[in-house]
Write a protein that binds this DNA or RNA. Structure first.
Lengths: 202, 202
DNA sequence: CTATTTTATGACTGATCGTCCATAAATACC
DNA sequence: GGTATTTATGGACGATCAGTCATAAAATAG
């Protein structure tokens, strides 16, 4: 495939990734049902027809947004978890990241978590993309906790699969609270307590 | 205040609590933004004006729903946590309840969690009621974990406040996944693992 | 050049939204 | 009886929704 291939028709005058990023912000803060085309138009500066040409209708656009966000966020977290250094330290780094996200001044929480809470409300068909991202996230945690056990940092009598789902659920729980904010500020305490609960006793 | 007091005007022909219960179901499954008056009318069999007379506009109605749900659910959980028997057993009972809720075939998750994920999206003003319910829930868990420590069932070096927020966040996390369903079925495993992580070593 | 294909943009569609008006009905007070 | 007050209900309100049409513009192909 040659990227210099001539393409028929008038070329697109906007950057697709830029537009998707701006669209993501709108869905993130207003949810799927709460997002309107006028809002998307003012956020992107584009005509709704341009968005439809590029991404399809509202539901398809939302699926693209979920996929885009999941690749970025889950991919980033998985990279940290599977990165160099001790596995438990990588988990700690992810928790630190999540603690900041849950307390971000924008108070938008996590787009994936918000989307999950809206799933099944009719029209939202991003269930597959959300589920795939969650599976990827859990698997990355399973690898990290398994390695952490091999490194002797995590108690060997705990199941890495269970630990992984605990970590994800704990994070998602605080992400939900990140929208209203009175509980979210204790996320760091809860994360570090979890780490000390699963650590090998001295 | 005498409940036999004669009230001026035409008496209400429907049961307020019944209507609120049916309205709750609609908001629960479709969210705030996804709920329309036609949907509320068919669910209750009432004219929208009757709902407005009784509860106010859509936002006020949603606040009533949140308050109603929070009183029932959080009140029930607090009653279990502060009930007779060992405190840790009561916590276990609540976790069992939550495990069933997260895996309920209706796949609606928790109304409070869904509402939190939608908070700040404009128009939703139930933030105070949600926050109050969360505080009540956390306080009930704090009392339970404190008692459990006094009963020698929970490691004394863990902070009950932190444990309470961990329990709530863990529950909320699985409630979110209760909408899509691929993670929620492991809620029981995660809850019982949490209990074994915080239990006093033999 | 013309023909074809794709994008850009303004205007419009029917449907649906939350809210409100107007009238009838049902009760209490006089 | 009549008056006042509240609820019940059909209908209409302007606004907004997601989606579509129609025309212009910008590119390639021949």
């Amino acid at each position: 495939m040659n990227s210099d291939d001539k393409i028929l028709g008038r070329p697109r005058s906007f950057d697709e990734a830029d537009a998707l990023e701006k669209v993501t912000q709108v869905f993130w803060s207003h949810g799927y049902a709460g997002t309107s085309y006028p809002a998307l138009e003012t956020a992107t500066g584009l005509h709704r027809q341009s968005l439809r040409y590029a991404f399809g209708d509202k539901a398809a656009l939302f699926e693209r947004v979920i996929g885009h966000y999941a690749n970025r966020k889950v991919g980033g977290v998985a990279a940290i978890l599977n990165g160099p250094g001790f596995a438990l330290g990588n988990v700690k780094a992810v928790f630190a990241l999540w603690g900041r996200d849950a307390n971000h001044p924008s108070r938008h929480g996590c787009l994936m978590v918000n989307a999950m809470a809206e799933l099944g409300s009719g029209g939202v068909v991003a269930e597959k993309a959300v589920d795939r991202a969650n599976q990827t996230l859990v698997e990355a945690f399973v690898r990290a906790f398994t390695t952490a056990q091999e490194e002797g940092a995590v108690r060997a009598d705990f199941n890495p699969q269970v630990l992984a789902r605990q970590a994800v659920a704990l994070g998602d729980g605080f992400m939900v609270h990140g929208r209203s904010g009175s509980i979210a500020k204790f996320a760091d305490d809860a994360f570090s307590a979890f780490l000390s609960q699963i650590a090998t006793p001295p």
